[in-house]
Design a protein around this nucleic acid. Structure first.
Length: 841
RNA sequence: GGGCGGUUAGCUCAGUCUGGCAGAGCGCUCGCCUCACACGCGAGAGGUCACAGGUUCAAGUCCUGUACCGCCCACCA
């Protein structure tokens, strides 16, 4: 093969050149004729395309790409698809802001509607179908931006294997799996209290909650006993006195024994409520008596359910107190309620505090506190609890046997790093309800269900109308169930579609099925499922990972993957978690532009598996330096016309270098098998630098010479370079491919991973090179101390070492003399030391 | 309140599983335009391994406890 080595090799333009070449040659295309045991399949995380691009977007993906590239070179056919998570609330919010539109499901579809070029202000209401269309338009644009970044980064994805969580195939898969859950009794609908975001007007699931510290105050409020006495409760939500259904104390609390079973009346409203006993009441908190309201917090829900209490809800889905006076209030209570009707809870709270003060039912001043309040993770106001009809998938939160089975699945999974396993256990252990999968939103996969409407106009929920699997996907708001006509929609005797969509996790929990085409290509699915790895962040173990395990457990009775590789967080250079609100988000594009993809990849690969990592320009610069070093060292190693026949490798120091290199190959391979890409890189890099600093310097003079000694050096340089390039290829795909192309046919990324077999019969003890390098280093120190050039001539080098050291050094002596520019080398036995006498002048 | 991870050189981090002379890079200092590379090369200085106790011939590494940082979870009246 003719060599085509540039005079001044550089990194610029390599990304574009090789991305285009790989695409044209199908370097990463998946060969589906391979069988399951020949395939390595990756359940790639579909990035949220409506989210911003930041360094977190490159970190985990680059790490995963190293696994893909290693396995591919190690002989596996790699199934490496890419998905886009475009359904759900993040997209809705982005579309609302981008176009200045909002969805109003009551509006009719406007076929002529075009999303505006400039955002509308105030937001323009559009029909659900127009809104969803706008979502599709924008997500396609967003996906192009993401694909551009991934390609610039050199992800070895098969770009023909892509999916979007809102596309036809994903909707079909999602609805099919849901209907199967329903048929097997794993999914069910229930009218029940749910956590509710009043801004998004949607229920949210336990997995989407976060606690935030908020100021509040404890109000001590008097309830009245029949004998004229009073009993005090402490509450941070006095506005809910009107929805109080009972007071509760601990059954063993001596102070309240004679009250259990009696009734008291609420202040101002005069509603009679029972005093009940329950273990969850904490005698240490407040007065030991708590007010149970429907519903102030999740404990209220527990009490309400377990004690079978009345329901007195006043907060509506829009977050306000209902306008009409509740029917359990009468007399003076009605007048009091009018004061808070229509208010938001925080307004009602202030009003109630005033009224309770006037009526002397507020005891003392409210005590200012900060407490944890539940929020939807994407929300801005505290969650309320409202009663509504929702769909659930059983997840063990209410069933111990199922919980145990899912815990066993987690234990079966290989976690990388191992300690991540407990995060799964704790989450499953702590579940307190089933998985709420319905959302009252617009851009998502619809719940594929209709309901009959009886002759009096009531919706019949208990016998839903289910579509045939072959008709999926459907949208029950526009499609019509078999045996009905569109004109009977919403009419007595007709039907109505379930208005809700599924939670985004209800679809993305099926990424193995979506990417592997469970629905429409069982042959492919069998070749890739269960997948080998699920790479993802630790923050979504409780959502994406757990939900995927649940779906796999139900649908296939097995784990969806063998291993979960969990990556860490990205922190900004000050080690703060990056977030848009802090304004410290770094976008990758300028870094890719300035330092190149290899440098950014190098940084990502330096982050240990599962370890939070700061963006560090210093590390990025080292990556760039390494890539440039590879170019230059390669130019040297390939700069001879010599024959690469390994039979030419005869010199002991050359064979010794291969001895060390074969150990490096073994260690890097072991590290990759354990998914420790960072260790593999570290080992390779350390070895490579000593290769260029010491080995290359030692053999340089000989390599420029003639005869069989020169041929040995030239052949060894090429063999060594070939190994180093392949070891680096998973990390630095562009520069290694570039150099490979200088003298090899085909892509390095389809070349075989180096193996110790390659040096069979050539390898000897690495100690020869190691001790020779040590002596060379010692001579350099002498020159450095004397502040002379490394080219300075040395009269003699005196080495003291043991027998085997001398034996080893003699075998590399001529190279040492050439590299050190030493006239003579002398040896003596003893403690290791090196002395060098510089030549005169 | 429970749990997980971390604390090693000025900085960023390896090393802890499996105990055996404290490591790398950056930065700093001093040199060197050495025919692959000045986008470079060589050399040097720099550490009470968070703290306290224990096991051991030997502890950064194993055990117990403490402090601080980060994260997760919790029924937060």
């Amino acid at each position: 093969m003719t060599r085509n080595i540039p005079e001044k090799p550089g990194l610029e333009g390599l990304e574009a050149k090789w991305d285009a070449r790989w695409a044209a040659e199908g370097t990463y295309s998946f060969d589906r004729s391979k069988t399951r045991d020949e395939i390595f399949s990756i359940d790639t995380p579909p990035p949220t395309v409506s989210g911003s691009l930041h360094m977190g977007s490159v970190f985990g993906y680059v790490q995963t790409d190293t696994h893909a590239r290693y396995r591919r070179m190690a002989g596996k056919e790699v199934f490496y698809p890419m998905g886009w998570d475009d359904n759900g609330l993040p997209t809705e919010r982005r579309v609302q802001n981008y176009y200045g539109i909002k969805c109003d499901p009551s509006l009719p579809y406007d076929p002529d509607f075009e999303p505006p070029d400039e955002p509308h202000d105030p937001p323009m209401p559009v029909s659900r179908r127009n809104f969803v269309d706008a979502c599709h338009v924008l997500t396609v644009e967003d996906e192009k931006v993401f694909e551009g970044l991934w390609r610039a980064l050199g992800l070895s994805v098969d770009w023909t294997q892509t999916y979007a969580t809102i596309d036809h195939h994903s909707r079909r898969t999602s609805q099919k799996a849901f209907l199967r859950n329903l048929a097997r009794g794993e999914a069910y609908a229930q009218e029940a209290p749910v956590l509710w975001d009043v801004d998004f007007r949607s229920a949210v699931a336990q997995a989407e909650l976060e606690d935030r510290e908020r100021p509040g105050s404890y109000h001590r409020v008097a309830f009245h006993k029949p004998d004229g006495g009073s009993i005090h409760v402490e509450t941070s939500r006095p506005e809910l006195v009107c929805s109080c259904v009972a007071l509760v104390a601990h059954p063993d609390d001596d102070r309240y024994q004679d009250l259990f079973g009696s009734t008291v009346t609420s202040p101002l409203f005069g509603v009679v409520v029972p005093v009940v006993a329950h273990e969850l009441a904490d005698p240490e908190k407040g007065t030991g008596v708590a007010m149970i309201c429907t519903f102030g917090d999740t404990t209220d829900v527990t009490w309400w359910r377990e004690l079978d209490l009345a329901t007195r809800s006043v907060i509506q889905h829009n977050g306000r107190f209902q306008e009409e006076t509740p029917d359990w209030l009468s007399g003076a209570g009605e007048e009091v309620y009018k004061e808070i009707a229509g208010l938001y809870p925080n307004q009602a709270r202030r009003k109630m505090a005033e009224l309770l003060t006037e009526s002397r039912d507020l005891i003392g001043e409210p005590e200012q506190i900060t407490h944890q309040v539940k929020f939807y993770e994407k929300g801005e106001r505290p969650l309320e609890i409202v009663t509504s009809r929702q769909w659930y998938i059983r997840n063990g939160g209410r069933d111990d046997d199922l919980r145990k089975a899912l815990l066993a699945r987690g234990a079966e999974l290989e976690w990388v790093p191992e300690f991540m396993a407990v995060r799964y256990q704790h989450w499953v252990d702590g579940l307190n309800g089933d998985w709420l999968v319905s959302r009252q939103r617009f851009f998502g996969v619809p719940i594929p269900i209709w309901y009959r409407i009886d002759d009096s106009g009531g919706v019949v929920y208990d016998r839903p109308l289910i579509p045939d699997e072959s008709d999926l996907p459907i949208d029950p708001s526009t499609d019509v169930p078999k045996g009905y006509v569109e004109s009977s929609r919403g009419e007595p005797g007709g039907f109505v579609g379930d208005p809700d969509i599924m939670d985004t996790w209800a679809t993305s929990s099926l990424t193995p099925e979506i990417a592997g085409h469970w629905d429409n290509d069982p042959d492919l699915f069998e070749r890739v499922y269960p997948m080998d790895i699920r790479p993802q962040g630790s923050d979504i173990i409780r959502t994406w990972l757990f939900a995927t395990v649940v779906r796999g457990h139900y649908e296939h009775s097995e784990l969806p993957w063998r291993s979960a590789t969990i990556n860490g967080w990205i922190l900004d250079p000050d080690r703060k978690k990056m977030s848009k609100s802090k304004g410290n988000v770094m976008t990758p594009a300028p870094l890719l532009e300035e330092y190149g993809s290899e440098a950014v990849r190098y940084w990502a690969c330096n982050g240990r598996p599962g370890v939070d990592t700061a963006v560090d320009l210093g590390v990025i610069r080292i990556g760039r330096r390494l890539a440039i070093k590879i170019l230059n060292a390669s130019r040297f190693a390939l700069g001879f016309s010599g024959d690469v026949d390994p039979a030419n490798i005869t010199e002991p120091i050359d064979r010794s270098m291969l001895g060390g290199l074969s150990q490096v190959v073994g260690q890097a391979t072991d590290a990759f098998e354990r998914f420790d890409y960072a260790r593999a890189l570290e080992i390779t890099e350390r070895s490579f630098w000593s290769w260029t600093d010491d080995y290359l310097e030692l053999v340089k003079t000989r390599a420029y010479g003639e005869g069989h000694e020169a041929a040995s050096a030239q052949a060894t340089l090429q063999v060594g370079l070939s190994v180093y390039l392949r070891l680096f290829a998973p990390f630095l795909p562009f520069v290694t491919e570039e150099v490979w192309s200088w003298w090899r046919e085909g892509s390095i990324h389809r070349a075989s991973w180096p193996s110790t077999d390659e040096f069979e019969g050539l390898v000897i003890d690495s100690a020869i090179l190691e001790i020779t390098s040590q002596v060379l280093s010692a001579v350099r120190r002498v020159k450095s101390d004397a502040k002379v050039s490394m080219r300075a001539e040395v009269e003699s080098v005196s080495i003291t070492t043991d027998d085997s050291g001398i034996e080893h050094l003699r075998q590399g002596e001529s190279d040492l003399r050439a590299a050190a520019r030493a006239e003579r080398v002398g040896y003596s036995i003893g403690e290791f030391s090196v002395d060098a006498v510089l030549a005169e002048g």
